[in-house]
């Protein structure tokens, strides 16, 4: 031991290519720009305000859930139940079909409480009891989805004339341009961004996702922190359900399958680590926009929906491969 070298104490990182490495976090934004550029050349309808805002309107629910999922993923968890929560919330809203602002507010409160309750259940099982989050939330997804079916009695919920407030949220545009739902998700995103960027809470869940053992040894209450992320996610899914209900007056319980995985796809695309400890709202937003514009482009190009699904899967696979390669290089 006495001959141990003193020079080996400091092994510093020498990036092979500083410029490329510096740009790495922005890779996906370049991909998005590339997509936008190509599409505006290919399709005359693409580069119009109308089309852009229709994309921003269509991504509403993906965006809301991705923001919530960001918290769950940061803390090293996983949630599959948000699609079911969204549909259940949307159905509850539409079945009550509130006409006045007061009844609307009351229904929204009810939805948020129900969603929060489902999130607490997920959080309790995954965070406090430390059960496998994949299986737990798969189970809640079946349960909540099933309750949705029962609630709808197998049919479609809604169809009656919506109250003025809901109609306004669903159809109106700020300055006759920006859909209200877009404004809502952008504001929600800004709030989440602020929380993740600056709150001690977000710092805590990030390190929990990095290593929950180390977090415990640092005095953090790991169980509660993990649990809280599921609550946040469910509440945002519930809020997304409210917006979806305002946008569309018909909610079929089978739509669960449709809403299930898009937000997870968006987060993965955006580069949020599914194993925890890495990611922010900007990642989620990038994934959301990428996914939204990919969908939009495929529609504009007239690609049949079956092929759309194949392409989406391939894009997701490519994103994961790129992500893993980046990680391996860093190690």
């Amino acid at each position: 031991m006495r001959r141990a070298s003193h020079s080996a104490t400091s092994r510093q990182v020498q990036p092979r290519n500083a410029v490329l490495d510096g740009l790495r976090p922005y890779t996906l934004w370049f991909v998005l720009l590339l997509l936008l550029g190509t599409m505006s050349l290919v399709s005359p309808k693409f580069l119009t305000l109308e089309n852009f805002f229709s994309v921003f309107r269509n991504v509403t629910y993906v965006a809301m859930i991705s923001f919530g999922l960001t918290f769950v993923f940061l803390a090293g968890g996983f949630d599959l139940s948000q699609g079911a929560v969204l549909i259940l919330s949307a159905m509850v809203i539409n079945s009550f079909n509130p006409q006045t602002p007061q009844t609307f507010a009351a229904t929204v409160a009810l939805v948020i409480v129900v969603a929060g309750g489902i999130g607490s259940l997920n959080g309790f099982l995954c965070g406090v009891l430390q059960l496998n989050s994949f299986v737990v939330t798969l189970a809640t997804r079946y349960i909540v989805g099933g309750v949705g079916f029962m609630y709808a009695a197998g049919a479609v919920v809604g169809g009656a004339a919506q109250g003025p407030l809901m109609e306004a949220i669903g159809l109106n545009r700020l300055f006759n341009l920006i859909p209200i739902t877009t404004v809502v998700w952008v504001l929600a995103g800004a709030l989440c961004w602020f929380v993740i960027q600056y709150s001690p809470y977000a710092r805590k869940i990030t390190v929990v996702g990095s290593s929950w053992r180390t977090a415990r040894y640092s005095g953090l209450r790991v169980e509660r922190l993990q649990m809280s992320t599921y609550v946040i996610n469910s509440v945002l899914a519930g809020a997304a359900g409210i917006l979806v209900a305002c946008q569309t007056s018909f909610i079929a319980p089978t739509l669960v399958w449709f809403y299930d995985f898009d937000a997870i796809t968006a987060c993965a695309l955006g580069g949020i680590s599914l194993s925890g400890g890495k990611g922010n709202i900007v990642n989620a937003l990038c994934g959301v926009l990428l996914l939204g514009f990919i969908n939009n482009s495929m529609v504009l190009l007239g690609i049949p929906s079956s092929l759309q699904s194949v392409l989406k899967g391939m894009i997701l696979m490519a994103a994961i491969i790129i992500d893993i390669q980046g990680k391996r290089r860093r190690e």
Binding site: S210, S211, T214, Y217, K278
Partner: peptide, 9 residues
């Protein structure tokens, strides 16, 4: 490594 540090932070 396991209990003291967040290696990737």
């Amino acid at each position: 490594h396991r209990l003291g540090l967040f290696l990737d932070q």
